[in-house]
Amino acid sequence: MSAIQIIPINWYILLSAVLFTIGVLGVLFRRNAIIIFMSVELMLNAVNLLLVAFSTYLSDSAGQVFVFFIMAVAAAEVAVGLAILMSVYRNTKSTDIYMLNKLKG
């Protein structure tokens, strides 16, 4: 029995739910694009945590492999996302997302 399994699965679920909710709330209520970005990362990692936990409990390594994929994609996404943010910032001199409403219908 590994160290991870000592702690009951419910705690992991709870923790990742809390992290995820914090992420969602961050996305919903913060105006700064960078913070929103970090909140998104938090949500991703909450899911990662859950994946790892389940993978260990079920002794199925597929979950952990999946986590690596997500991390790799997330890294790429961060690179692209930050680049976009940089150019937004250069154009608007702000990272406030409420300034970005040019696509209003």
């Binding site: 919903l28 105006r31 409420y98």
Partner: peptide, 16 residues
Amino acid sequence: RKAQSGNIGFYVFVMV
């Protein structure tokens, strides 16, 4: 089109 407010926060909120 009024729903398409251009406000990202609103979009995310609706999504959630």
